[in-house]
């Protein structure tokens, strides 16, 4: 246990934690997106699918707990790294030349990560709590989403956060490969491209929901 502890407290160990938990979170987002896209199948199709998930509730609960633990560990380690790194580098240069040597995505991981965390809390409170405890016998999950995004503030908020999620993943995907030691002169450029594609798909996919519902709430054809 001591060895394990020592490993996870080392600089490289923490990187590894970020990488492994991050990969799980990306996987989760992929599943989440698939579910979300079912909204485009109309109320009936979507509600049926949510009901189907409801039928395996115990399994979902277990997975939710694991997911929550992963997310918390990811956030905790990320914040810890941020704090330690700040201590290691307290003073800035007179001229900021960061853009000369690194990408904006890589430098803003703590900021985008923090925003995503705040978003998640709100998201859980508004959607997850509603779905699980606030349906009051109704099974029209579709309607909940529709009402939610009819509010332009909610729609805009979700839309913006989805762009940040894209930013975060764009760096995170290739970064996790590097942290795990899977870098290679020939393949790393490909991994970077794949990461960008995944980031765009996830960001565009998730952002399309608020855009779509906001659009139909103003009388567009659903």
């Amino acid at each position: 246990m001591n060895r394990l502890n020592q490993f996870f407290n080392s600089s490289i160990g923490k990187k590894l934690v970020m990488a492994i938990t991050g990969i799980f979170l990306i996987l989760f987002l992929v599943f989440h997106l698939i579910n979300n896209l079912m909204l485009f199948g109309g109320p009936e199709f979507f509600n049926e699918n949510v009901a189907r998930l409801d039928s395996i509730k115990p399994l979902i609960r277990v997975m939710e707990i694991i997911l929550a633990l992963i997310f918390i560990y990811h956030t905790y380690t990320g914040l810890k790294l941020w704090w330690e790194n700040k201590k290691a580098n307290p003073e800035k240069y007179a001229v900021n030349a960061n853009k000369e040597n690194s990408t904006i995505y890589s430098r803003t991981m703590t900021i985008t990560g923090s925003l995503i965390f705040i978003f998640l809390v709100i998201h859980l409170y508004t959607i997850w709590v509603k779905y699980n405890f606030g349906m009051e016998g109704s099974e029209d999950y579709f309607e909940v989403i529709k009402i939610h995004f009819a509010n332009p503030i909610w729609a805009a908020f979700y839309f913006i956060i989805m762009i940040f999620i894209g930013f975060h993943i764009n760096h995170a995907f290739q970064s996790s490969f590097q942290s795990l030691g899977w870098s290679h002169k020939k393949y790393t450029p490909i991994v970077k491209k794949i990461g960008t594609v995944i980031a765009i798909i996830l960001a565009v996919g998730f952002a399309s929901i608020p855009v779509y519902f906001f659009y139909i709430s103003f009388g567009g054809q659903g």
Partner: peptide, 30 residues
């Protein structure tokens, strides 16, 4: 501090040392 893979090091290294070396170290450490 800890590496967060911004690769500013590689960009500023006067000898152009590659960050692939960091990946190799990560792997070996693991």
């Amino acid at each position: 501090g800890s590496c967060t893979n911004t690769y500013a090091c590689e960009a500023e290294c006067p000898k152009g040392i590659s960050v692939l070396n960091i990946a190799r170290m990560n792997r070996d450490y693991f």
